[in-house]
Design a protein around this nucleic acid. Structure first.
Lengths: 210, 210, 210, 210
DNA sequence: AATGAATGAGCGTTCATTCAT
DNA sequence: AATGAATGAACGCTCATTCAT
């Protein structure tokens, strides 16, 4: 029955809309007040629903947190992948492409005050429900992605790293997270400077800018 | 008047003992369950007191958290400073001294499951009371200390860094924090490998071990 | 949609029932133990609910106190207004109608041990939340009501007051409150005697009864 | 032994000083925050002592409240008694002397924000410890005093009251308390207008001022 | 006489979660 | 799918009072 299907789809669409709105509200509140200082009431009020609606779509406050974080991290990874040299000129400027990627990540992090929420997530992730797509897997994928990328650049002769590529991948991500922590605590720290470190580590022969 | 002094001291001693016990209990619980999942009741029960006693010595849960974290971080900094070459042989083995320092930090971090508590602290530090000795100052001091140390080694001709020393100091700390995050999320990550990265960055000519 | 309306109404009815029960319990406890000696726990236990239910319907203990007091005072004012001469005989017996009004108020005050709660309310009213219908307005209305009533009686030639009517209204209410205080402190004081004072003040020529 | 006596007296003097300071601090805080919102800690901190000192001199918070209130009310009564015609001119101006007495009371009441504390006292007095000098006796004495005074004036032919003197005394005090309540709630009420009412009640032939 | 650490019961309030509607 | 009243356990914190010093 087509009518039935349409009705069902309408319901589904409505549900998806609700889920989306709840996630948006939760994300903004977690950013603003932190996860543990945000209540379900805060979330549903901001999203324009009531508590019951929340529990239809999510098992717990922890679940929506995990979902939001995994999705965001996935988006970041995907976005990062799309930053590719798309013209002949860029092909040979390894510096520029690394810079673009780092700057994308910094923008995503800074502009949304992502750091405290991310740290709260990492601090609690061993207590959070993680049926799938858990942070362990996400980080592993991330590292593999970076490593693959480095291998690609190395094979093209664009970089000449001294350290093993897997260690390099881990280190690059560590530097990124570590600079985030420091610039979150001390606003005088300029996270853009990590670019020079990374370029040095991968053996790009471009001169440091500062 | 001796009598007066003794009375005062006895009260003080008792108070100090209580504060110490409360801090110890709080520290262990923050490690075990995290700050936000630990209640004052948990703390005082573990320490063998009642709630009232807690509020004689601390203004709030946040205050004891800040105090504990600042003290621990200060201790770590002090301990780190004491790891010095104490024989002629070590004098020339820069690798060994860096290794000792990194390993001390790793031990302090791992053996006590420090990372989640530390991340929760950083995630919330902008909402925490920090009259003095706040994390901004602690991190700044830490960076200056590392930078001073690097300068010392450089002047002795033991290291030959390419990057500016202040950036190097920031980076070394970032790598440490970043490896902590990763090995906290993914236990297959071996944080000792950061040693090779650091040695490479500072321009020690010793070969990487792995 | 009838179904929607019914659902909404059922929820509303339940809520109204709960609010009513909570207010009743609170009122009785404030009478019995005083406002500051009554806890939310006392109230909800007496009403047969849990604390959470209380905070769904009231913002704070102060709010329910303010609401209860304002409602009661409003009821008293309304009741008082309904005491009117309803037969030809009463029309000319000004004494009787004043007596009825005073006695209604005395009964409302005495039989419910209203005085201590009322005094606690007045003592704290400058610290209480009073978005609307606050005691200032209630007293003002009350005075105006009494004044209007006196004017009516004067125009009918039933009373012949020497003092200005606004001062008289204020004074009558003051006497009522003042006698309440005294008879609350000293049970040998008979508040009914205020009737003679009032009759004298308004210039009714009936002889005092005592 | 004279020395012993001196030592004892010194202790006593010190104790009296402490009691005085504690009462002063308590009085000011009860005025400022109300009795139930003032803690022993507040009192001893303001007086410059510690909790222990409080419990040496007072049994409970209620006790110091009762003591303070009884003392104040006694002082007011005594002060009131001292306002007497002291020259021939005043002897015949009954209006002036009543005015002085009422104004003294109004000043004592208004200038110290006495009303809320007084009402809180009356509201709770049946729950307060009142070994002696309790408010019942104080009010009774007060009424007798006023009555005696009225009798004196009447015998001198200065006043010509219609109502019985005991009722008049009760009424005058009731008017005073009642005006206090009203002007506490509604600052637009001018308590000085009670003077005209009292003068009218006692049968002074001076014209009302307003 | 005074200190001040400690008690312990209690308080107002919050909140994740449930469920009848 | 969504409502929202209700639960019930906790929570951070206060405070009158006690007592060893």
């Amino acid at each position: 029955m087509i009518v039935g299907v349409i009705v069902k789809t309408k319901h589904q669409l409505k549900a998806e809309q609700t889920i989306k709105k709840l996630k948006k509200a939760a994300y903004e509140l977690f950013i603003e007040k932190g996860f543990s200082h945000t209540s379900i009431d805060d979330i549903v009020k901001k999203a324009g629903f009531t508590k019951g609606a929340f529990y239809i779509h999510f098992k717990s406050k922890e679940e929506i947190f995990t979902m939001i974080m995994n999705e965001r991290m996935l988006i970041q990874q995907t976005d990062l992948r799309t930053i590719e040299p798309n013209s002949i000129e860029q092909h040979f400027d390894i510096r520029k492409i690394i810079e673009q990627k780092v700057e994308y990540m910094l923008k995503a992090t800074e502009s949304e005050h992502w750091t405290p929420m991310f740290l709260e997530f990492v601090a609690n992730c061993h207590r959070l429900p993680q049926e799938q797509n858990n942070p362990t897997l996400l980080y592993e994928e991330w590292r593999k992605e970076v490593e693959k990328h480095l291998l690609n650049l190395k094979q093209k002769g664009l970089i000449d790293p001294v350290l093993p590529l897997d260690l390099l991948a881990t280190t690059i991500i560590a530097i990124f997270d570590g600079f985030n922590i420091q610039s979150h605590i001390d606003h005088s720290i300029n996270p853009k400077r990590q670019l020079d470190v990374i370029l040095f580590l991968i053996g790009s022969r471009t001169k440091p800018s500062v």
